[in-house]
Design a protein around this nucleic acid. Sequence first.
DNA 1: GCCGTTTTCGGCCCGACTGTTTTCAGTCG
Length: 575
Amino acid sequence: MINLDIARIFDEIADILEVKGDNPFRVRAYRRAARTIETLTQDLKVIAERGGVDELKKIPGIGEGIARKIVEIVQTGDCKKHRELTRELPPGLLEMLAIPRVGPKTIAKVHDELGVSSIAELEAAAKQHKLRGISGLGAKVEENILKGIEQYRRYRGRKLLSEALPRAESILEELKKRDAVERITIAGSLRRMRETIGDIDILVVSKRPKEVMDAFTSLEGVEDVVAKGDTKSSIVLKGMDVDLRVVDAGSFGAAVHYFTGSKHHNIRIRELGVKRGLKINEYGVFRVDTGEKVGGENERDVFRCVGLAYIPPELREDRGEVEAAQENRIPELIELKDIKGDLHVHTKWSDGKNSVEEMASTAIALGYEYVAVADHSPAVGIAGGMDEAKIKKRQVEIDSVNEQFEGEIRVLSSVEVDIKSDFSLDLPDDTLKELDVVVAAVHSKFTQDKATMTKRIETAMENEHVDIIAHPTGRILGKREPYEVDMERLMEVAKDTGTIMELNSFPDRLDLNDIHCRMAKDHGVPIAISTDAHDAMQMRDVIRYGVATARRGWLEARDVVNTRGMEELLNLLKG
DNA sequence: GCCGTTTTCGGCCCGACTGTTTTCAGTCG
């Protein structure tokens, strides 16, 4: 899919225009187009070849100019405007945008006045106190830039959802103990449950904001107080930025909406407000003519005032949710309680820590109807993969556990069979056909080219015994890039062969991701939300990240196979 | 650069905090 490449080109154009001080609305137009393109579930190349500029212009945020550039990129693989702009600026300049508290204006100034064009040069200039000669920059700015560079180097990149969420929850616990805190909630990307989190946003209702600020900035583990005001403060806590905002009870709904974002979603909502003569800010919804407050206590007020159905936080990314809410098409998103079983867990029979029985009793405690033990096949030697003999032995144990827990849980016998680099599966069909569920996955040779890797997975899907493709892109967040694969093609083959795609709930996988989930839904491909748990605690703890990602992918319970009861599920499998 | 039940031109979301400023620019979300 060429979409991500095109989005990157438009983002870079926006960056360069920003540093050049170009029209900020033009910058915004490029950014909005980039965000839209990133999340499109259809290949731009296909759209461009089918309908050209006219069809591209139907996509919101894409007009004549950007549509023409997309066609140009699809046809020539290059964009003239982008090429010309990149020549105008030294390559290191844009990297500086990633430094906290350093923005386009600062970069332009230090470049124009001192010829600084990289982070290293900026650091040297600050240390030699050369920045304070520039108008608008002083000693404090030098100090903040050095701090920013240090922060950028130390905590580059974002934290996993699974790291940020528990940390935020413990901050909430701590602040709840204070009398001044009447109400407290998580907002920001964490409330939207993004897979990675840049900073933690917290919203408090209080009549005594100063006390709250004091408590917040003196929390245990605070490394730096970046800002401290009457209603807003910012700290660095154990390597994460944490922002806190205090409002009064009458503004809570407007504030939680504003503070949840995303930024792009908020812009769309406020634009709708402007058209209706309304001003929307974190304090409420106001009539522009009279200044009268018409809403703000509840989050639903904000949507109601602009004529929209309620939009759950996970959808607020300006990915079409505003249009859907206008037409009353907001999906009934899947919830944790809809999950009736886990179709991918490991046991001691390969690299898991717990026995079949222990996994079964945990599944019972979770209220599940079934759990599929999907231990590795022989090729994954490091994980103690099972050969045919071992699978037979394990079956005896599964049968006995099923007898023991009859009526409480059904343990499905399964394997996570390796899809080898020569396209073959790691176990013969005769063995696979004996199993209740077959999960197939790639575990090696991640560097095969896109066409080969796509064919490799396609071949597995075409096997009449393979029910589910596990972690279909192989990514490990922060450690391993996804392998190259034509996801749209895979979705088509999955649909044709009746193969289920896994949403692996492990917080550093979340694979399929939210956008892929939505693509699957558009193609009519069912999803299995599985944990890939290697012990019982993981089976319990990580499923919520999978469900969150599914919600971000607009999935409803009916799109997910493991919301079905045992009998219905068995009907959805190939066997 | 996009977009139109106020417009095909002239708008384009909104406010807090900081630092360098005597009234505001820059950054952030």
